[in-house]
Design a protein around this nucleic acid. Structure first.
Lengths: 232, 232
DNA sequence: CGATCCATTGGGGAAATCCCGTAGGGATCA
DNA sequence: TGATCCCTACGGGATTTCCCCAATGGATCG
């Protein structure tokens, strides 16, 4: 069981190669990493799957029904796909996946970052159930480490940083947004900070603009998601 | 941000025992788990540290300066404490910790859940630097797994569930709150869902009440944090 | 030393939200 | 079969937010 240090190299090609090496060293068929960024909600990913399967997956928008994605992003611990055998979406996706030689036996490892970013490292292996149990136990620690390092590497990279850039709110804007998120009115915030409610409104407006929000509720939602503030 | 010793509650004795077993099986001196809940900001924890050290830590509110806590909760990957050698807070805390036989050589493993909950599993070991490097490499996978499972267990437990309970919004309330968080006005939402804007307002009101929010922005913030909705 | 950004305050008016009610139909459950 | 909750809808009025405008002092930066 070998682990490659990603902190040394961090380009996109290296990441694809890393997944391939992960498959070899951990004796698995396929590995896939998906990142759901909290700002756009888009999903970016790398996978060792056949190109045709990747395209089909995207065309049919399977990420909306695939429980190895939708359920796993809600989990804390790694999720074995055996949990999804009674899931209709699972059947839909993996009856199609079987045509591409992709097993319905796998594991999804979620990783969360401080900005609401969620990474998902999934691996599959076609083998007997008993063998799978043993393999899973053997590699789960390494998979956890690999998932965390991979996600960390992706989040530090420039390509993703551009997509998930956190708007630089001024300290005052942050402060006021924080109070608004705590359920205070603009008038209240003015009293709390000993400034005019007009000033509060101005800061709130510029915060909305910087966050690309049309309304204050939307701005609060985005700021919470981006970990700029925490709701009271 | 208060410190709460969870091991005092009788129902959680097995968790303290788990940490002790972790120490033995992974050949480490001490293990500590801390949970920062996103609502109160309070810190709940278990530790194998001497009782006197736990008390002193709480009395002096070290959780505000201790970089093994403050820095690690911002990290994705596990953090080796060697990174903190030039940190003033680190010196403050660990010059005091040394009196209790606690090494300044350790590792902090952060874990995040879908509700903004952050768990931190930290371990220490007093030994030579080379030996530490080897040990760390050997146990880091197991530590990751242990941290995730421990955090998952804590979050599922009743003691914490009471503190972080998720209010059951109706599907309609969720739907409307989702649109509001996407920057739509009540009028817009009424048009989108083909219902009266008055009805939208009613749902929004009951959503606020269920979330214990005084204003709509606060309700959106909380709903986002609770992963009931995702901001547009 | 200008340029730029930030924090601050203000007015006027349009728009939206919020709070106080009421009320019927449908689903679920003890 | 009542009880309870959800979804739907409406009104009036008070409150709040939002958007247009303009202005001053301070800090920072090239």
């Amino acid at each position: 069981m070998r682990l490659i240090d990603l902190s040394l190299s961090a380009s996109d090609e290296d990441r694809g190669a890393f997944l391939s090496e992960l498959c070899e060293s951990l004796e698995i068929d396929h590995a896939c990493y998906a990142l759901q960024d909290p700002f756009s909600g888009n999903v970016h990913g790398y996978a060792t799957y056949p190109e045709e399967w990747k395209q089909l997956y995207g065309q049919r928008a399977y990420q909306h029904v695939d429980p190895t994605f939708t359920k796993a992003v809600r989990s804390v611990a790694p999720v074995d796909w055996s949990r999804f055998t009674s899931d209709s979406g699972f059947d839909t996706v993996f009856s199609a996946a079987r045509d591409f030689g992709i097993s319905s036996q796998g594991l999804s490892v979620p990783v969360r970052g401080p900005f609401g970013d969620i990474g998902l490292l999934t691996v599959t292996r076609d083998c007997g159930e008993r063998e799978w149990q043993g393999l899973r136990r053997k590699i789960i620690g390494g998979l956890q480490s690999a998932a965390v390092n991979f996600h960390d590497s992706v989040m530090r990279s420039n390509t993703i940083a551009g997509l998930m850039r956190v708007p630089p709110l001024s300290s005052r804007e942050c402060e006021i947004l924080q109070w608004i998120a705590a359920g205070k009115s603009q008038q209240d915030v003015g009293d709390i900070l000993s400034i005019s409610p007009r000033t509060v409104e101005v800061h709130l407006r510029s915060a909305r603009e910087k966050l690309g929000a049309l309304t204050t509720p939307q701005a609060v939602g985005r700021a919470v998601r981006l970990a700029l503030i925490s709701p009271g």
